[in-house]
């Protein structure tokens, strides 16, 4: 059984990595690639926009991960407290749904909801309750000050429900006798949640964070559909940076340069996986993630 898997991995996983060589060339897809050593990397590291995109990728991904995980845990704990099974299932279904919505549709909906006009739900509400004046509407998706806040909010709305699945599975595995014993000992709902539920789910939280931390460099669609020219300083991430290099050049791009950026991203991702693996071994009794 080992051989087919091994060959499959080599052919489909390792062989395509030959493409890495383009990172060390000038290559426009027409002429033969011309070896240029580390020129693409030198150029990449000298670009202000590259470093902005790199920093944005790390910050946006990590904050998004922590926020969505935290919200998923809180929502799971609340869901776990719902006694009426029918109502619980309805709530679960409703909060899962946004996960299946495409990012393009999500961006369109939130562009309308957050619009700085009388058609924007949020701004209209803020004006009606007197928080904002009519001429003070906030352009959430067009302001560097508000964009990330809006981005995190949209991600929480879209992904929290789906992330509760894993926490709900953990919660359903907690021995009910523990709760019964706690009740006998006089523990209330908060006490049971604090001393039984939360410790039980803590290990899962850590596992989820570690697993997702290894993927923080992979951020494209959500950032791309929500960003615009005015917020690139805070919203441009590495993958959208590659996209703009490719499609904004007004010519056939140098694939060597974009491959170099991709390779750098992969190396950082690989380092994160190894770090997370070590961390996982420490906190999960020697169990790594790879």
């Amino acid at each position: 059984m080992f051989l087919p898997v091994f060959i499959f991995a080599c052919v489909f996983n390792y062989l395509p990595m030959i493409g890495i060589r383009y990172a060390f060339t000038n290559y426009n897809g027409i002429k033969e690639p011309v070896f240029n050593g580390f020129e693409n990397f030198q150029r990449m590291f000298s670009m202000v926009n590259f470093w902005k995109a790199f920093t944005n990728t790390i910050v946006i991904s990590v904050v998004k991960l922590l926020l969505t995980t935290a919200f998923a845990v809180v929502v799971s704990l609340f869901l776990n407290e719902i006694v009426n099974l029918h109502f619980k299932k309805v709530v679960q279904t409703i909060i899962y749904l946004p996960h299946f919505m495409s990012w393009v549709v999500t961006a369109s909906i939130f562009s309308l909801i957050l619009a700085p006009t009388s058609h924007g739900l949020v701004n209209t509400f803020l004006v009606n309750v007197g928080i904002l004046g009519e001429d003070q509407m906030i352009y959430f998706l067009g302001s560097t000050k508000w964009w990330r806040f809006a981005y995190y909010l949209i991600n929480i709305w879209k992904e929290t429900g789906w992330q509760t699945v894993i926490f709900m599975a953990t919660l359903s595995g907690i021995n009910t006798e523990l709760y019964e014993a706690a009740s006998i000992d006089g523990a209330g709902r908060w006490g049971k949640m604090r001393y039984i539920t939360f410790p039980a789910v803590a290990n899962t939280i850590l596992t989820v964070i570690i697993l997702n931390l290894a993927k923080v460099m992979n951020l494209f669609e959500s950032a791309f559909v929500l960003q615009n020219d005015a917020v690139l300083d805070t919203a441009n991430v590495l993958e959208t940076y590659i996209y703009y290099q490719t499609f904004n050049s007004g010519s056939i791009p140098n694939y060597g340069y974009t491959t170099a950026i991709g390779l750098f991203k992969s190396i950082v991702g690989c380092v994160l996986v190894l770090v997370c693996n070590q961390w996982s071994k420490k906190v999960r009794d020697g169990r790594g993630i790879v």
Partner: peptide
């Protein structure tokens, strides 16, 4: 606009910056 190696290398960053400044 004809294509040159320099244009291919730099115009992606340049266009992004110009668009950003026009919006700002």
């Amino acid at each position: 606009v004809p294509s040159t190696d320099v244009l291919t290398q730099l115009n992606g960053d340049l266009t992004t910056l110009k668009n950003q400044l026009i919006a700002d």
